[in-house]
């Protein structure tokens, strides 16, 4: 399935998941360093909680696209699996429409939230007062990549279903 996705899309999704992976490693190291510092030097690393929290925002969503490519997201195939080809085609069209609608609304909303954070100079509510806007931008981009990939995948499946023979010949 992933073979059907264009190379740039796969590249972006995989780059994002590498960044998320690095953030996750950073989260591990920061927490470990904080505990060690507290027990050895009697001093916490200032703002560990705040930094961890924003790192989690990146870790939680940057991998959305890659999870879509590798089919990690949960869905229920119980009913579709029992349907004839026509029924599957209808479901596929419905999914395309819904993904497009939800995707555009969510991206618009997330963009608005991001712009709001920029405008208000929003910061985290801790000692460090980290600026939240960049992390909110990460959300916009992560969801954008996710919906583009999900739609791409869905449209591809639709095409495969519609003209099973010709396309499967290409991807095999």
């Amino acid at each position: 399935m992933s073979a059907s996705l264009p190379r740039p899309a796969r590249w972006v999704a995989s780059a994002f998941s590498v960044i998320a992976g690095l953030c996750l490693l950073a989260l591990v190291l920061l927490t470990v360093a904080d505990v060690v510092s507290r027990n050895v030097q009697g001093r916490s690393i200032l703002g560990t909680v705040e930094i961890s929290t924003v790192l989690l925002v990146a870790v939680a969503f940057l991998g959305l696209g890659a999870a879509e490519i590798t089919g990690k997201h949960v869905s229920v195939s119980l009913i579709e699996a029992r349907l004839p080809r026509l029924g599957r085609l209808v479901f596929s069209v419905l999914r395309i429409l819904l993904l497009a609608a939800v995707g555009s609304l969510l991206i618009l909303g997330l963009t608005e939230v991001y712009l709001g954070a920029v405008q208000r100079g929003e910061t985290t509510n801790g000692v460090l007062g980290l600026v939240t806007a960049p992390w909110k931008l990460i959300l916009v981009i992560s969801f954008l990549v996710f919906f583009v990939l999900a739609l791409w995948r869905e449209v591809h499946q639709f095409l495969v279903l519609r003209g099973a023979r010709s396309v499967s010949g290409v991807t095999a």
Binding site: L27, S52, T53, A60, F61, L106, G109, W135, F143
Partner: peptide, 22 residues
């Protein structure tokens, strides 16, 4: 729309939840 648009950040910006990816 506000609920949906604010949900991703407010869900993830929680120190307690860092335990999940870990």
């Amino acid at each position: 729309l506000s609920t949906v648009a604010n949900q991703p950040y407010s869900t993830a910006a929680s120190y307690t939840l860092t335990v999940i990816p870990l």
